[in-house]
């Protein structure tokens, strides 16, 4: 099974890392005072939680990215048969990428690769 090796090494490292954190936490019994738990802000006190509505300034880029990334789904199988199919494969993928590039150019023109 192809997954065995992958899951084994993942499991080993994740378990080891969690164990190290757990043992280290058990080994030190001293507790942090509440005043020590204030998030670091260069000395000033936070007046809000960090977890709140946030204006992520590149949101349009992420939407373009989701649509563009779909093309990867088609490219991997294409790469496998590329040599066997020859010029036809080059032409078809060239067309496909050209179509999608129009989208990127449009997005660039609308300024979505900057902070909105």
């Amino acid at each position: 099974m192809a997954l065995t090796g992958l899951l084994t090494i993942m499991g080993t490292i994740v378990a080891g890392a969690l164990l190290l954190q757990w043992v280290a936490a058990r080994a030190r019994r001293d507790r942090l005072a509440e005043s020590q738990k204030i998030p670091f802000l260069g000395g000033s006190a936070p007046n809000t939680h960090a977890w709140q509505r946030f204006h992520v300034r590149y949101y349009s880029m992420t939407l373009l990215f989701i649509a563009f990334e779909m093309e990867m789904m088609f490219m991997y199988p294409w790469a496998v048969v590329y040599v066997a199919e020859g010029v036809k494969a080059l032409a078809e993928m060239g067309m496909f990428l050209a179509i999608l590039t129009v989208g990127i150019l449009y997005g660039w023109r609308e300024g979505i690769f900057r902070w909105q």
Partner: peptide, 26 residues
């Protein structure tokens, strides 16, 4: 000492470094 903050998402906070190392392993 392992630092703590007020009301962190402790499960994900401890899992994230472990998963990051695990991904490098895969």
């Amino acid at each position: 000492q392992s630092n703590l903050t007020e009301a962190p998402d402790l499960l994900n906070w401890r899992l994230a470094p472990a998963l990051y190392a695990g991904l490098a392993g895969t």
